[in-house]
Simulated scan of single mutants.
Amino acid sequence: MSIFNSLSCSIFVALVLIGEAFLLSRAQDPSRLSLSYYSKTCPTAQDIVRSEMDCAVKTNPRNAAFMIRLHFHDCFVQGCDGSVLLDDTATLIGEKHADQNVNSIQGFELVDKIKEKLEAACPGVVSCADVLAIAARDATILVGGPYWDVPVGRLDSKTASVDLANSDIPTPQQPLATLIAKFLEKGLSVTDMVALVGSHTVGMSRCVNFRERIYGGDFQLTSKNEPSSQANLAKLKDVCPADGGDDNVSGMDYYSPTVFDNAFFETLLQGSGVLSSDQEMYSSLLGFQTSRIVDKYWADAALFFKDFADGMVKMGNITNPQGGEVRKNCRFINI
Rank of each mutant, 00 (worst) to 15 (best):
V194N: 02
A195H: 06
L196K: 00
L196E: 00
V197H: 02
G198C: 05
H200F: 00
H200A: 00
V202M: 01
V202D: 00
V202S: 00
G203H: 00
G203R: 00
S205D: 08
V208L: 08
V208G: 04
N209S: 14
N209A: 09
F210R: 03
R211K: 15
R211M: 10
R211Y: 09
E212V: 11
R213S: 01
R213Q: 09
I214D: 01
G216E: 07
G216T: 12
G217L: 07
G217F: 12
D218K: 14
D218E: 14
F219P: 01
Q220M: 07
Q220R: 12
T222A: 10
T222K: 14
S223P: 15
S223D: 07
K224A: 09
K224S: 10
N225K: 12
N225D: 12
N225R: 09
E226M: 13
E226K: 14
E226R: 13
P227R: 04
A231Q: 06
A231W: 05
L233P: 04
A234P: 02
A234F: 06
A234T: 12
D238A: 15
D238Y: 09
D238G: 11
V239W: 04
V239T: 10
C240D: 03
P241W: 13
P241S: 08
D243K: 14
G245H: 05
D247V: 13
D247E: 12
N248S: 15
S250F: 06
S250Y: 03
S250H: 06
S250R: 03
M252A: 04
Y254H: 10
Y254P: 06
Y254F: 15
Y254N: 07
Y254E: 04
Y254M: 13
Y255K: 07
S256P: 08
S256M: 11
P257K: 02
P257Y: 03
P257E: 01
P257W: 02
V259K: 05
F260N: 01
F260H: 03
D261C: 13
D261G: 11
N262C: 13
F264C: 02
F265Y: 08
F265I: 09
L269N: 06
